[in-house]
Design a protein around this nucleic acid. Structure first.
Lengths: 293, 293
DNA sequence: TCGAAACGTTAGAAATGCTATCAAATGGAT
DNA sequence: ATCCATTTGATAGCATTTCTAACGTTTCGA
């Protein structure tokens, strides 16, 4: 277009700084370089334009007419560039912090705490996306992911957010007075599990049970499972941390438990994080806990 | 100031070109680089801003909202920069071609020819500065200098503009029927010479004459000497080329001559010259000549 | 006459940018 | 369906640009 033959942009910026400060040394400081660098850039610009832009006058400098003319437009131009970038930073700062996690974790652990966060950080809005899918972190997308892994895949480099016993629980009415001392006995109870997962079969396998008849498994969205369990629709495998109150009040009964088997931890993009995201992380870790027995 | 933390300018330009063309390949062509270069610059910008600006959609691309927002300001900004540079180029193109030379050369050789130049290049205005001083060429100042040197300091690398016999001339009335076959006889005639020069003494020295009495020398501005000689106010040392017509008509008389002793040549700044200056140089050399006997 | 404060200049090192090349994805065309 | 052309993505190594450090020069005031 018309700016095909623009001089080197850095030389324009250097000259613009010189024009603004009227002083190579200050301009250099503003650009975080040495005065020599500025001097060279201005020379490069003058060579390109075939025009003197700056003349020494004693111990200081002075712009030529041409220099002053150019400086005016440069100031406008760079201001526009800065405005554009600034606007983006603004949008960036105001964008909600997006967190992905499992529905159970969201409903039972995070949601109850969110109010506290919002009191402490009224300027930051959180956006939770509870889903069983593993949502990839993305620049401009999800900022924080709460992941689950169990004891069988240890990773000492992980900083835990929530370590919890994992338990199988059910409503008292569903259990009655059956003898459930043996894992195999759970084969006949109705399991509730997240759509697309296979927790029931995995738990049984983990305990050496090979079902000889089909399991009674009800798949449902994660957000419904917790309430369904409380209503007595079935049993499920979950973290003790999510049912502390229900267990204490006897609303649900613990059938089996694996000590500190589950680990929820945080993943973020590598690289610098937005301030809002850092605040959120800090708050999350300050709520870290270990729930056992 | 506020643009202390502007991202790398080249990456901004690259992205701006991408936004404008909607196409890496075209943007690359516009910037005279490869598509890979553009791709890298856009990545650098995205990394700096921590924002996705461009998303691939099949075989083409699409700006994100943030990208579109930024692109708007960038277009404004770069347009302003371009405007500033363009204005300078404009001034540059319209600035007169400045030529410095001796008053004699100006009055007797160049001025009579200037009309021809202006007919051939109506868009270019010439500014002659006839002076005996050696004016330094300067960026944004004098574009062309016509210099004089004589046979005693040859330089084969010089492209001659005017080679001329150098002669001593005077008005017939001043000479009368004196015997002037000997250079020493000129000691008693009144010399006219440019302010600040010493042509009379130099000429006499060149011919082995050591004056035993003070010379009668009238210093005056160069532009007046020619006419003074024609009026018979004195003799002077000059180029035959400047007095061809006067000699032919007998209005002045040639007293002594050095064959092809004087050389007028052109100096310009090194480096690329403005188109107007190039035109002028071309025209000057097309008028080059050799004046002898 | 001295020293401080500017800018100027330069070589060489550091950073950045670019190209060449290959790969992958897409959407027509045969 | 397969091929081909088009476009973007990735990367190693080279080329260019930019910067710094060090020293020089000019000016000005004490």
């Amino acid at each position: 277009m018309d700016w095909l033959k623009l001089p080197p942009l850095n030389s324009l910026r250097a000259f613009s700084a010189v024009a603004e400060t009227g002083n190579y040394t200050l301009a250099a400081r503003q650009l975080s370089v040495t005065h020599a660098a500025v001097s060279q850039q201005v020379k490069i610009l003058e060579a390109h334009l075939q025009v003197s832009l700056v003349v020494r006058s004693g111990r200081s400098i002075q712009l030529t007419d041409e220099g002053a003319s150019l400086a005016g437009d440069l100031e406008i131009g760079f201001a526009a560039l800065g405005r554009g970038v600034e606007r983006l930073n603004q949008l960036q700062a105001e964008r909600p912090v997006q967190i992905t996690m499992s529905p159970a974790f969201a409903a039972e652990w995070l949601m109850p705490k969110v109010k506290d966060f919002q009191q402490k950080h009224p300027g930051i809005t959180l956006m939770l996306s509870p889903t069983a899918d593993v949502v990839e972190l993305k620049q401009g997308g999800v900022d924080i992911a709460v992941r689950y892994r169990d004891k069988r895949r240890p990773d000492s480099s992980i900083k835990p957010l929530l370590v919890s016993d994992m338990i199988v629980i059910g409503h008292p009415s569903l259990i009655g007075d059956q003898d459930l001392s043996n894992p195999a006995a759970l084969v006949d109870l109705p399991w509730l599990q997240e759509l697309g997962t296979n927790e029931a079969a995995e738990w049984l396998t983990l305990h050496g049970v090979v079902p000889d008849r089909p399991l009674k498994v009800h798949q449902m969205p994660g957000n419904l499972i917790m309430d369904a369990v409380r209503r007595g629709d079935g049993i499920t495998f979950t973290a003790r941390a999510f049912f502390r109150n229900d267990l204490k009040s006897g609303r649900v009964i613990e059938l089996f438990s694996e000590q500190e088997f589950g680990l929820y931890y945080i993943e973020t993009l590598s690289g610098p994080l937005r301030p809002a995201v850092r605040s959120c992380l800090h708050w999350l870790y300050s709520n870290a806990e270990r729930v056992s027995i």
